[in-house]
């Protein structure tokens, strides 16, 4: 039961994107298409689970003074590994996400979870927390990229949805659209979900 709570916590109550407003850079930069948003989400899930697990395992032997540098090294290791795997198995995703794959290192979600959850909880709970946070992040990215791709390019996963008469609102896949959709999405999330809870 506790495990389930650790998992679901990240999806709505403490959704990293809409509630905690962490990891904002990739959230806006890669959500121009659903494929990119999904790919980024999965990469972050992988890194979060691994780093949470390792940090939870080693937290007893890590001296307090140097814990942050050690966390950063652990995270950077997994990010580099994920980067190589993406390059090897999905070059299309690699060229779409570009510089934002190595930048997962400085995605504050990951360091924040390491510091505030994984360093204080047992391994299994930390894995669930990583998974939940990652899924919450991915869902948020897919939602935002869905809105932006649909209205900004008239497609969903690169398939045309509307007829030829539809003139896409290009601004939504340009940088200003990232800020705008993100702002409105947070407002919507607050209005619909937080009020009820």
């Amino acid at each position: 039961m506790k495990l389930w709570k650790d998992f679901s916590n990240g999806i709505i109550k403490e959704n990293p994107t809409f509630r905690l407003v962490l990891g904002t850079c990739p959230t806006m930069a890669v959500t121009t298409a659903v494929f990119n948003g999904l790919g980024m989400g999965i990469a972050v899930i992988a890194v979060l689970i691994c780093s949470n697990l390792i940090i939870s395992l080693i937290n007893k032997i890590v001296p307090n003074e140097v814990r942050i540098p050690i966390y950063v090294v652990v995270i950077a290791t997994f990010v580099s590994a994920v980067e190589m795997l993406i390059k090897a198995f999905s070059p299309a995703l690699d060229s779409a996400l570009g510089i934002f794959i190595p930048l997962i290192v400085v995605n504050c979600i990951i360091l924040a979870r390491a510091e505030s959850f994984a360093s204080k909880n047992p391994p299994l709970n930390s894995i669930m927390d990583g998974l939940g946070m990652g899924v919450g992040f991915t869902l948020a990215l897919v939602f935002m990229s869905g809105v932006r791709e649909l209205l900004g390019a008239g497609t969903f996963l690169n398939m045309p949805i509307f007829g030829a008469g539809f003139e896409p609102a290009l601004i939504l896949i340009l940088p200003p659209g990232g800020f705008l959709v993100y702002g409105l999405a947070i407002a919507l999330f607050n209005k619909l979900i937080v009020k009820k809870a």
Binding site: L174, P175, P176, G177, G178, F179, L180, Y182, G183, I186
Partner: peptide, 20 residues
Amino acid sequence: SLEGFPIALITASLLSIAFL
């Protein structure tokens, strides 16, 4: 509903349009 981050992001969006 727009208090806090939402209104800040919408403002940033307008600033970004200006920079376009």
